[in-house]
Design a protein around this nucleic acid. Sequence first.
DNA 1: GATGAATGAGGGTTCATTCAT
DNA 2: TATGAATGAACCCTCATTCAT
Lengths: 195, 195, 195, 195
Amino acid sequence: MARPGLEVIRKKELIHATISVIYETGLAEPTLAAISARAGLSSGGMINHYFKNKQDLMESTMRELAGSFLGEVAFNVSSAKTPIDKINAVIDANFASSQCTPEAVTAWLWFWARIPTNTAYADIESATENHVINELKRALEDIVSEHEVDDLAEGIMAIMYGLWLRFAFDSKKINVEVARRITKDLTHSRLRTYI
Amino acid sequence: MARPGLEVIRKKELIHATISVIYETGLAEPTLAAISARAGLSSGGMINHYFKNKQDLMESTMRELAGSFLGEVAFNVSSAKTPIDKINAVIDANFASSQCTPEAVTAWLWFWARIPTNTAYADIESATENHVINELKRALEDIVSEHEVDDLAEGIMAIMYGLWLRFAFDSKKINVEVARRITKDLTHSRLRTYI
Amino acid sequence: MARPGLEVIRKKELIHATISVIYETGLAEPTLAAISARAGLSSGGMINHYFKNKQDLMESTMRELAGSFLGEVAFNVSSAKTPIDKINAVIDANFASSQCTPEAVTAWLWFWARIPTNTAYADIESATENHVINELKRALEDIVSEHEVDDLAEGIMAIMYGLWLRFAFDSKKINVEVARRITKDLTHSRLRTYI
Amino acid sequence: MARPGLEVIRKKELIHATISVIYETGLAEPTLAAISARAGLSSGGMINHYFKNKQDLMESTMRELAGSFLGEVAFNVSSAKTPIDKINAVIDANFASSQCTPEAVTAWLWFWARIPTNTAYADIESATENHVINELKRALEDIVSEHEVDDLAEGIMAIMYGLWLRFAFDSKKINVEVARRITKDLTHSRLRTYI
DNA sequence: GATGAATGAGGGTTCATTCAT
DNA sequence: TATGAATGAACCCTCATTCAT
């Protein structure tokens, strides 16, 4: 008696349990036992019914984060009219409250640290940021001269990633409002002569 | 017959072996066995002669990275004349080639990811960035109006951290030259009206 | 499909494996590997399913010994009519064959030696001997004058502990029969004027 | 330039350091590092200049304890006139304050626990107690009938060992005075008909 | 005589994974 | 589908021992 929806539900549960455990645990590595317990499942091999192994679960978790983030970006951009609106939309998506929970930020940081030695994580990150960077570039192409596009897109990305990183270090020092303000301030200053 | 320098030498060796292993290993965690092997020592407990335990070694490694970085900043800043020179000096120090080896950047990323759950790492990071941010603030106080100082210093830090992060993800896409250029471009644009 | 009895069974198996290993091993410390092997389990971390850690296993083992001993005492005392019968019952329980196997005696000795530096063992020992000493005191109160009770109870305990100790050193020199005889001889001589 | 006394002095230092460490350490096993530190020597192989290895040091320590104890017994017995005086002398030696320091008692307990699996310790213990038991037997032969001698000597030994054991468990509950009193009370009660 | 650097075996413990139920 | 018993590898750490100085 297949209940096709159950598997999807359980997968989501385990993925969010993973994010929670990354955030809560004092350990560097989330253990399957901790994740299982968080999801209300038995410690043993339940995870193996839904994921091939731990690495599979971790990749799925990163993809979930990436998907949520890209969804936020796409949603925000969709209603943007002008190029500058688009850029603002990307910035706002970056610092949307759904993307800036301590859980999400900590989980991102966790994955980022594994990128240099894990191509799967590197690929997900690469695909994710390419989406965003291309969004920025398409907007910038209408504003600045062609040879400035790459640097500017990369610069805006850097500001956002940097603030996210610093947010992960100390979520009290910088909040979402401030992050948005700083990013837009620097970006708009740079684009001032064009607009 | 005490050889007083030996301990210092061995400690440095082990610290740099640690950085190497973080960079090279496919594993999330550098093992003491791998570090010992990298340093040409026996797999066993040699590390215990020089460090209290693994955590002690890791903290010492992070302090070594931080010390090297702050030394670079101090050296660069020392010869800066004007406030804007100081800011440039900080930026140049950030992207000095000694600070941007793949090993160093990967190691920093490794430590950053542990900050949320490791107060020792958090403290070292906090002390390090405070030094730099204060250097920036002192320079900015002479340039911009008072209420802008904090945001601007934080913004410059974010650009640098962001580029460093992206450099850690993919050292081919962004090199040191480009990073310096992008940072200065955004910073100078923002300060343009004042200078 | 839960098999509720299995955990209890396995725990007992491991506890008795521990006692065996203490007796058999030439080493001062029974290793978990040896205990696992004795219980027919894998060398690794099976013990962790049933005990929190080694200390937990060791304490459980001591409690098992204590429980068995106190059960023997309670059983013997239950059918005693007169005070002197009670005292004899305690002595007989002390030297019941089930309590005087080389394994049991060696294990007791092992725990005793750790009492000065291990409060958990000290507490178990203390609780155990308090039971017995109180049993003796209740009987003695009906026989001797009040101010003699404490010394006498302590004296009888000392004889029994001393013989047990000497039995642990060399189980050939003193057997259970002799131990019982010596204890009763000394005790009855002391109580002679009263009975 | 041989200084023959130095070796003896250092050996004693190390032996007493060993006793101290057994008493002080919270660990089950005294480590050579701890013993060396206690004796003010380097952690490394200094001990190997004076002892073949750890086992050699431990055996020497037990022999020191045994020698001190037998010396006390011999000294006390030497001035005893009557058989009963001799028995009292043995009892007093057993509970001489020099033999009942927490350090000594804990060390004895430590060695006792290893007797079942260490023939060297067993031999030292056996030789030691034989001395004492023979002293008792020689005295008892003049007092009681022949067939009672063995049991009585063994009984007196048991009382003394038992009280020592209980003293090791909790040095506050039973002190030297009480131990002497209990031992003599039981012994004299048993011998009452003869004297 | 004395040091302490270095070794390497072995300990307890954790944990991903498998599999019978 | 779900459990949890069981495995075995790998980790950090301790410690007796050796040896160059």
